[in-house]
Amino acid sequence: MALLEIEGLDVRFRTTNGLFPAVEDANLSVDKGEVLAIVGESGSGKSVSMLATMGLLPWTAEVSADKMAFDGQDLRQLTSRQRRKIVGGEMSMIFQEPMSSLNPCFTVGTQIDEMLRQHLGGSRKERKERALDLLAQVGIPDPKKRIGAYPHQLSGGMSQRVMIAMAISCNPRLLIADEPTTALDVTIQAQILDLLLELQQDTGMALILITHDMGVVAETAQQVIVQYAGRQVERQEVKALFAHPRHPYTEALLSALPERAGDQARLPTIPGVVPGQLNRPSGCLFNPRCRYATEHCRQVEPKALADDPARTLCHYPL
């Protein structure tokens, strides 16, 4: 049985212009100890589907799914009190902006302690020991001093380390990392990714890594889901995906990697932008930017074939 199983997840936002579909028919399953990457451009609904899983979307969101189960427990059936036991405890999440994700009014120690008190309990002294251990584990120098620091006294990389310490504090079985390195310097990015993978290896937790960096995907993930405009267009094992991308969008993403561009003077790009609420094309959502698009693509919405393990959302898979 998979640890997290989601089928047919739809997320719609209520706006003044009616419902906007941010995620349509998302499916995923993550096994224990597995690393899954979700890739796609900004606005492709990567974060939204994971926020929906965590139950963190604002009140304007409408979430529905055919199946949404964590370790066999149906997340849709749980009361909010039962769900809060899972969220933070067994399934935790770190975010894109570490600097604004920590509460500016409380010290690092207080914020970690709060999480421990919520899910693990223990005496004040035990919790403090645990917090110090966690800070050391995520590579924060001088934890005894840092535990009393306020978030504004920390750099972005340090803040993300604190976020990670907090997220793993209750030994979660699944960690969702929503673009954890996007807001950080390149050198720090590598350090944070290494840290995440090391922790994943040590603890055996599953990791869902949301990113738009194909290089990161190649280094870390076992399974990859490619998402475009709220739709999953392809999912494959990482080696297969890099060797034989099935969807033109995946191919375009991969060919934009510097390693693959060879000695071309300019990196190839994908023309245009992800469609928004008001300019959704008919037919395949990717057709205006796809170099293989035909008249058929512009008129008929593609459906994934049942016998296609990659579930490619394309009329003419590569």
Binding site: L56, F95, S101, L102, P104
Partner: peptide
């Protein structure tokens, strides 16, 4: 709407604690 309030919810804290503390 701040990120840290989302973090507080992601910690599995009660709604009361998220509103009254964070």
């Amino acid at each position: 709407g701040e990120d840290y309030v989302r973090t507080a919810r992601a910690k599995g804290l009660s709604n009361f604690r998220v509103v009254m503390v964070h």
